[in-house]
Amino acid sequence: MNKKVIRILVLMLSIILMVSGCSEKYDAKDGNRYPIKRFKGSFTVDPNNVKAIAGFADYVFVGYVNRLTKTIYRNPVNIETKDDGTSTIADPYTVYEVTVVKNIKGNLIQNQEIPILKEGGITQDKKEVQLYEDDILPLEEKYYIFVGYAQSDGSILISGPNSNVELKDFAVDPSAKKSLINNKLSDDGQILKMQKAVEAQIPRDRKRFKSKYESK
């Protein structure tokens, strides 16, 4: 079975598994609101098992989202339309500029902006937002615990449920003194829980890459 056929079958399966989020809306930075269409994913590890996620990931870190920069589209597939024409659809990936303020696993550059790629985002036709079930898109000017995967090109991918968890009680201005931010980081319950998960992580053997944003 060739790669083109496999990709079409995967696409068809994704469409079959899609669940429309009629009541959910995503507020975009341009003021538009988009319905969220969710789909089930098949993951190598249980996204609800924090120790398994920590073991599978290359990086676990606390980051501040400075801005959403763009949405890119990958894995294009041509499909037939109702009028016997064709249309190209592709998977959305949202690009953010993030400042790493604390490394929990791995050693990424801190205190300067680096790009991360989040699987999911506004579809190419600008009609809706595509996301996995139980997943969210990061919001600007908020802190998150990110679970990242180094890609072959050195970029960092954030993908799936619980790959970015908002620190809801961490209300610190990013321009505050580093000592204040570090004190807050050391006292945050969500961060402490993730640190313990990393310490007790369930290792998973797989091919791994190194991000070009690692600290030298």
Rank of each mutant, 00 (worst) to 15 (best):
E166Q: 15
A57T: 11
N32K: 06
R204V: 13
L17Q: 13
I72D: 05
Q151V: 07
Y143N: 06
G41F: 00
I104G: 03
V19H: 04
Y143Q: 02
D173K: 15
T81E: 04
G55Q: 09
E113D: 12
K177Q: 14
I114R: 05
E214F: 04
L11T: 04
L131Q: 03
N2G: 14
L13N: 12
D173S: 15
V60E: 01
E128C: 01
K177R: 10
A90T: 06
P92D: 02
G21H: 07
G160D: 12
V50K: 11
T44K: 11
R74L: 14
R38M: 01
N48S: 05
R67Q: 13
K210W: 06
I79A: 05
N183W: 14
G63E: 10
F43N: 00
P203K: 10
L17G: 13
T69P: 01
N111M: 07
P203R: 07
D188A: 06
A28F: 00
T69H: 03
E97H: 01
L137K: 00
Y132M: 11
R206N: 02
E24Y: 06
L157M: 15
V50L: 11
K105S: 04
P47H: 04
R7D: 12
V60C: 05
I53Y: 09
K70G: 01
D125W: 03
